[in-house]
């Protein structure tokens, strides 16, 4: 069963005249959710609005049933937030102190916050470095500290904004497996904001695709990438033009798509294709449905211009 953790109602945020997000009304299910979109699409703006860091120009939202306009502090205690900014926090403070401090800001007692800070840093793999000053941490370590600050008060939802930014391949794998384990083993709801398809594909079951401050598509990744094609893909080795020409002559609408020829599906089309291939001496190497990746979905949703950045 999927229940909604966040429901927004025509949520809009303008930075002066610059649009951050406009008129977003979505229901975000629990589980592993991804915000996917190119730079400047409004992902961070939506997250910061949900946390009350910025106030919406219009509209409102409910997080776990709490209204962000009236009960923002209830919301804040239930969300763990990994910001996207590259911050050294308080450079001359130890990781332990800083994470414990974050816990106290969310209402944990002094002893509880120390205990949990230690646990959280252990969880993200920084147990040995926890008494080191944050200013000496590498980018990857800082990302983990951010995750520790997001975990320390035991929130129900963890929002990670570009958590793999600037990480090397190992760091990326570690970070993603940490996030996945939070969902799988601790039952946290995860929101991952990213412009990286491979991150989203690894983590999320459900995705919202952002573009220019609006949501272009949303749904289960499985459904989004499922076959819904009206054409069949053919790959031939020789006489490609002649083959294509003949297909169209015979009334099978066909076109070239990369190294494939795509043909409109109709009754008995496959039989016909083989017949034409025989006639034109085209050597068929592949015939069938290519499976769609999230990337196909993504690229279909955006014009070239969108993707240039």
């Amino acid at each position: 069963m999927q229940s909604e953790i966040i429901v927004t109602d025509s949520l809009t945020k303008f930075y002066g005249k610059i649009k951050g997000i406009e008129d977003i009304s979505v229901e975000i299910p629990s589980g592993n959710v991804a915000f996917l979109g190119p730079n400047g699409a409004g992902k961070t703006t939506l997250i910061r609005t949900l946390l009350g860091i910025i106030h919406p120009t219009k509209g409102t939202a409910r997080v776990l049933g709490y209204d962000i306009r009236k009960e923002i502090n209830q919301v804040r205690d239930r969300i763990g937030y990994v910001p996207e900014f590259d911050t050294s926090f308080i450079p001359d403070m130890t990781a332990m102190k800083f994470v414990a401090f974050c816990a106290r800001m969310n209402g944990l007692s002094v002893s509880e916050s120390k205990q949990r800070a230690s646990d959280s840093l252990y969880y993200v793999g920084l147990d040995e470095e926890r008494y080191r000053k944050l200013g000496t941490f590498s980018l990857g370590m800082k990302q983990k500290v951010k995750l520790a600050t997001a975990l320390v008060h035991d929130p129900e939802i963890i929002i990670c904004d570009e958590p793999t930014n600037g990480l090397d391949p190992t760091g990326r794998v570690q970070m993603l497996s940490l996030i996945r384990s939070l969902q799988k083993n601790e039952g946290k709801d995860i929101i991952l904001s990213s412009h990286l398809l491979r991150d989203v594909e690894q983590i999320a079951d459900y995705t919202l695709v952002f573009s220019k401050g609006e949501i272009r598509a949303q749904g289960n990744i499985k459904e989004l990438t499922a076959e819904k094609r009206s054409s069949i893909s053919i790959k031939v080795r020789s006489n490609q033009e002649k083959f294509l020409q003949r297909l169209n002559d015979k009334g099978i609408e066909s076109w070239i798509d990369g190294i494939y020829i795509e043909s409109q599906i109709s009754h008995d089309v496959e039989k016909e294709i083989f017949k034409i291939a025989n006639e034109t001496n085209a050597d068929i190497r592949y015939l069938g449905n290519r499976s769609r990746t999230l990337e196909d979905v993504f690229i279909n949703l955006f014009s070239k211009e969108d993707l240039i950045e």
Partner: peptide
């Protein structure tokens, strides 16, 4: 240090 982002996500 951009720690405001963390503080404002927890405090009024």
């Amino acid at each position: 240090n951009l720690t405001t982002e963390i503080y404002y996500s927890k405090l009024e």
